[in-house]
Nucleic acid binder design. Structure first.
Length: 662
RNA sequence: GGCGGCGUAGCUCAGUUGGUCAGAGCAUGCGGUUCAUACCCGCAGUGUCGGUGGUUCGAAUCCACCCGCCGCUACCA
């Protein structure tokens, strides 16, 4: 698998990968950084393999939120976008992301590409005119879904929205269902991980609806070429970045060389657009499909979502400031299997960086260079003819290289790094076994000592090379300290990932530890554990007297505390109406103290809408809002069910609405 | 409710097609070493491999049912 045959073809083919393009109505955060770092590690690995790599990043700007943020900042949209794009690029530069292109959707080249693209699918007969119905806010000049609304009102203006119909252009997405399904069956690797692919398949099973791809009444966006009164729907616009960034519509030669992409890296929230809509778009435009859509996981923070209201967002710049560029990158790649969710904690990153980079890798370099200095006058000894490959370390190194290669090709980034760390740990152990300090005292063991020191230096050279896609600062530094001649920074090449390439006689240049241990006393906490109120948790009181022991929770009982988490309230039904198109659902407006909630309840078979207003009910007031039948339900009614009948639970005598139910 | 997935040492997880599969890393305890960044190395562990049945000479690994968790989806108490 390592170095023959198939290679020549692969090397000739460029490797084009993309990350999601980001909304730039706020600064880049941890999740953005994760995606870019993993993409960059893949890109650097492919370059290591000698392939031409295009790594595209970008900014998704034609959304209403961006236009609004611009207005709030007092800037023209384009000026605002350009400024934000700079902030994003600065962050990616800080993280060492080696992107080749950064496409803003407001870039004239992109806008031209979008027009070319949609014109093409129009000419190919995949677009038709129909009516779009949606909820429209006049102030925003934008449509919203039921899910976006807050209390049925515009999330930005707190104004009622109105149902508006407008003529739009529709894309025949449904026509591609069977073909897409077949493609997924024929190409198991088209969507990964497999669980995501299964989701897409079941989605297709459920059926597809055509997609409105234009909007009237909007000025911020790309004009539909054959209908200047409309702009292209923002998602359609955004996806086209993947081709516009590499020249579609403005540099055909480059586009033809790089397309189709080998990999789209995305988060799990946008799977549908990339695994369903995008392939259909490409087919409609007569273009080839990308080889793979890889869905990475989300990061949590102390088990909770990153969110501004919790105050636990992490600025990538802080991550770099505290843990270093390599520390941040290593943590992001090595901590969690690629494709799974991760959980950021200050403790986990400190441990990961300290044990892997400082204690294992950094210290191995330090002790190795120190011994070469001390025992061999600072020159890498000659292991002697034919002996270098005989040591266990040498054999392991080549096995690790092959396992690393397999892992990287399959995007098991975390396994790939883990393999190299295994080698590093084995080298540390080998030092103990060989005890070079003992060999040094016995002139008869000079050959053994030579071989030992050579093997250690060579292991470090290889480990640094294999880790170079992640440890972008440390890998070159390790080579520098090993005294490897050549360009600085070194052009890491896969051909050098073979045992024995380190030239005997090389003068090492020991330096300061590449990865100093973090000082726990001064390491800044990036994500202190917080209480639900958003305040940092109090430290446990000394003496421990005030600790409240958790009630035992056997299978049959919940603790009182668990029960107390429910906020049950008396509510007064103000209005009730049947949910159109539904048999069982009623949409209620319920007054609970000061607030009025919209609650969807499945009680229509037992209660007629007109008999409900004025009645008191019991409401679960702190239930997370859910969308039911397209309508947000902000709570739940308590009802008893039995004998096929449903009975609302009501207070036995009159109490004020808003009263607590215990 | 439907579909998919998961439940293995304190924690995070590996465990291809059933037979050294009961493991790794981290954390803990004890010991060793000195080349080293209070580092590294060794030893010790604990596990009813979610539960119950079944197939088999033999199952963490296959089947059934049950419990719990997660994802997508759904006319949701």
């Amino acid at each position: 698998m390592s170095s023959t045959g198939v290679e020549s073809r692969a090397q000739a083919e460029p490797f084009y990968l993309t990350t999601a393009i980001d909304y730039t109505n706020g600064d880049p955060h941890f999740g953005h950084a994760y995606e870019k770092v993993t993409a960059d590690a893949i890109a650097r690995y492919q370059r290591l393999r000698g392939r031409e790599v295009a790594l595209v990043l970008g900014a998704d700007e034609h959304s209403y939120n961006v236009a609004r943020a611009a207005r709030e900042a007092g800037l023209e949209p384009k000026a605002y976008c350009d400024r934000m794009a700079e902030r994003f690029r600065a962050t990616w530069d800080r993280l060492g992301i080696t992107y080749t292109d950064f496409m803003q959707t407001s870039d004239p080249r992109h806008e031209a590409a979008v027009r070319t693209f949609v014109q093409r699918i129009y000419d190919n007969g995949h677009v038709y005119r129909s009516t779009y119905r949606g909820l429209y806010c006049r102030s925003c000049e934008a449509f919203y879904t039921e899910r976006d609304l807050v209390d049925g009102r515009c999330p930005w203006h707190d104004e009622p929205v109105e149902t508006v119909e407008e003529p739009n252009w529709f894309f025949r997405l449904s026509a591609f269902r069977d073909r897409l399904r077949q493609h997924l069956l024929d190409h198991p690797g088209f969507v990964e991980p497999e669980s995501r692919r299964n989701e897409v398949l079941s989605l297709l099973q459920a059926g597809l609806e055509d997609l409105s791809i234009s909007r009237a009444h909007q000025s911020w966006g790309v004009r539909v070429p054959w209908d200047e009164s409309q702009v292209v729907y923002v998602w359609f616009d955004a996806l086209i970045t993947y081709v516009s960034a590499i020249g579609f519509g403005w540099d055909e030669a480059r586009f033809r060389r790089l397309w189709p992409a080998r990999l789209h890296l995305i988060g799990k929230d946008i799977t549908r657009f990339h695994a369903v809509v995008w392939p259909a778009m490409l087919w409609a435009a007569g273009l080839a499909l990308p080889e793979k859509v890889f869905v990475h996981g989300f990061w949590y923070c102390n088990g909770q979502r990153f969110s501004k209201s919790l105050g636990n967002v992490i600025d990538p710049h802080d991550l770099v400031a505290v843990y270093g560029r390599d520390g941040a990158r290593h943590y992001l790649v090595a901590e969690t299997p690629f494709g799974q969710d991760g959980n950021f904690t200050d403790e986990s990153i400190r441990k990961r960086v300290t044990s892997d980079l400082a204690n294992d890798l950094g210290n191995l370099l330090h002790r190795t260079t120190r011994m070469i200095e001390r025992y061999r006058d600072g020159r890498v000894p000659d292991p002697g003819p034919g002996r270098a490959g005989e040591t266990e370390l040498a054999r392991l190194a080549e096995r690790v290289r092959d396992a690393y290669e397999a892992a990287m090709e399959e995007l098991r980034l975390h396994d790939a790094v883990g393999e190299v760390m295994r080698l590093v740990r084995r080298a540390n152990k080998a030092i103990d076994e060989w005890a070079p300090w003992a060999l040094a005292r016995d002139p008869a063991k000079a050959g053994e000592l030579d071989r030992a020191l050579y093997a250690l230096a060579e292991t470090l050279r290889l480990a640094a090379l294999l880790l170079s896609p992640v440890l972008v600062d440390g890998s070159p530094e390790i080579w520098r300290q090993l005294g490897i001649a050549g360009e600085d920074p070194p052009p890491f090449r896969w051909e050098d990932a073979a045992w024995g390439r380190l030239a005997p006689g090389t003068a090492i240049r020991r330096g300061l530890p590449v990865y100093p241990r973090l000082d726990p006393a001064t390491t800044r906490q990036l994500a202190p554990v917080r209480t639900q109120s958003g305040r940092p948790a109090e430290a446990a009181p000394a003496g421990g007297g005030a600790e409240r022991p958790a009630a035992p929770a056997d299978g049959a009982h919940v603790s009182y505390d668990d029960f107390a988490r429910l906020d049950l309230r008396v509510g007064l039904v103000l209005a009730a109406e049947a949910v159109a198109g539904s048999e069982k659902l009623l949409r209620l407006r319920v007054k609970v103290g000061e607030e009025i909630r919209q609650i969807v309840a499945g009680i229509r078979e037992q209660y007629r809408p007109e008999e409900l207003p004025g009645r008191r009910v019991v409401v679960v007031a702190n239930l997370a809002p859910r969308r039911i039948f397209g309508i947000e339900s902000q709570g739940m009614l308590l009802a008893a069910e039995g004998g096929g009948r449903l009975a609302l639970v009501v207070p036995e005598r009159d109490v004020d609405d808003g009263s607590r139910v215990k």
